[in-house]
Design a protein around this nucleic acid. Structure first.
Lengths: 218, 218
DNA sequence: ATCTATGGTATTTTCGGAAATTTATGATAT
DNA sequence: ATATCATAAATTTCCGAAAATACCATAGAT
């Protein structure tokens, strides 16, 4: 694991921890987040916890109502569909821009990201569930690399926020789609290198649609 | 002035206040936000201020670097273009969905929002600059009403976040485009009632493009 | 039996101050 | 004059406790 970056505050590290715990389902949707309990769990004071929960509330991963504290954002089939549609809209658009502008460095990033993702997929297909977290991280990085030449920081940040919410749904129904997803990733890589926007977008649409269906039925 | 909603916390009201002060330019881009100074300005404790600044950091209206405190998010021509492009992407897509699904209630909301906006535009064109804030609020509400039948809460929230950032640029170069913008709003209303997606999207593109150009040259 | 008041407990919200860190200041040596 | 380093000031980060508010059970009234 990475050494903590210099200048890392307690707030920052705990923020990432709680965020990951929400995305990976250890803090279940709808769960009440009592300050005292969290204090015991994460070893930070209530004020610090409140800073973190406020940030997560802006991220949409926590809801904060009036004077009634915080809870993990609930999930629903409708929300999943909305998040997935939003991801499609943003990612398809960003791919179009990225494919048009990507240089050799970009191709290198894409190939590299796919390679790392692919290794994880092989291990997952082999039955090794211990690398789920890493696998999802590489999935994240691959899709991020595809759009990394889109030229818009704002677009990438908005996409990242939506992607994280999508990721939470994927993790909740933690069943691995395995071979199918791996194939789709390979097709996506090929389309990227061929700069074939239409094909890539069609694949992504199928990719996301299948993920949604998978999440809904699990 | 409105009575504070029940269950309104100091944090919440001060959050809105600071947010508005950033969007309307009273806190200038790049300005260092020292806790002690803010404490004097807004009359809230340091801890409460920190909660608020963390929230605004997630919103992208302030930046928080390491252990060096907070500052108002900087502005740049590139960022304006990116935000504007993002607004176009989200709003065009949302209009398409909304035009297809909007019922009579939706039409009522659109007509009503346009009427209120139009009254403000008349006063602005007449030279009354005192209503700028209201005018921008009605502008916000009109565009929000156009997409209010899109059926996706996630899409509307993401759009709102982007719109607020766009609005800040508009306020920074606070010159009123007046008659032109008013005409465009009327055209947008007509297109909405005719459910003419293509025309509405074309108008919105011009509308935003002109706003960007106006912001860049001011 | 249902509803409203009352008090006690649990939880959240807010504050001021202590510890840690960064930034500014100034003295000394090259 | 410039660089280096110690020291002081300013600022941020973090905590624990006080104040405000919500929640729940019980009792009394309609």
């Amino acid at each position: 694991m990475l050494a903590n970056a210099p200048g890392a505050t307690i707030s920052d590290t705990t923020y990432r921890q709680i965020r990951a715990d929400i995305i990976f389902g250890r803090l279940v949707p709808g769960e009440k987040l009592k300050l005292d309990k969290l204090k015991g769990l994460y070893g930070a004071s209530v004020s610090t916890l409140r800073e973190i929960l406020n940030r997560l509330a802006s991220d949409g991963l926590v809801v904060a109502e009036g004077q009634r504290g915080f809870e993990v954002a609930p999930v629903s089939p409708e929300d999943l569909k909305e998040i997935a549609a939003l991801r499609q809209l943003l990612e398809c658009h960003a791919m179009e821009l990225s494919f048009a502008a990507g240089d050799m460095d970009w191709e290198g990033r894409v190939v590299s990201a796919h390679h790392k993702l692919h290794q994880m997929e092989i291990r997952m297909i082999g039955g090794d569930r211990s690398v789920t977290k890493d696998w999802k991280r590489y999935d994240w990085e691959f899709h991020q690399s595809l759009i990394s030449a889109c030229g818009s920081r704002a677009l990438m940040e908005t996409h990242a926020a939506v992607f994280d919410k999508y990721l939470r749904y994927q993790m909740i129904s933690l069943t691995f789609r395995g071979q199918i997803a791996a194939d789709e990733h390979k097709q996506l890589l090929d389309a990227a290198l061929a700069r074939d926007v239409a094909t890539a977008q069609a694949i992504l649409r199928r990719h996301v649609e299948a993920g949604v269906k998978h999440g809904l039925t699990a």
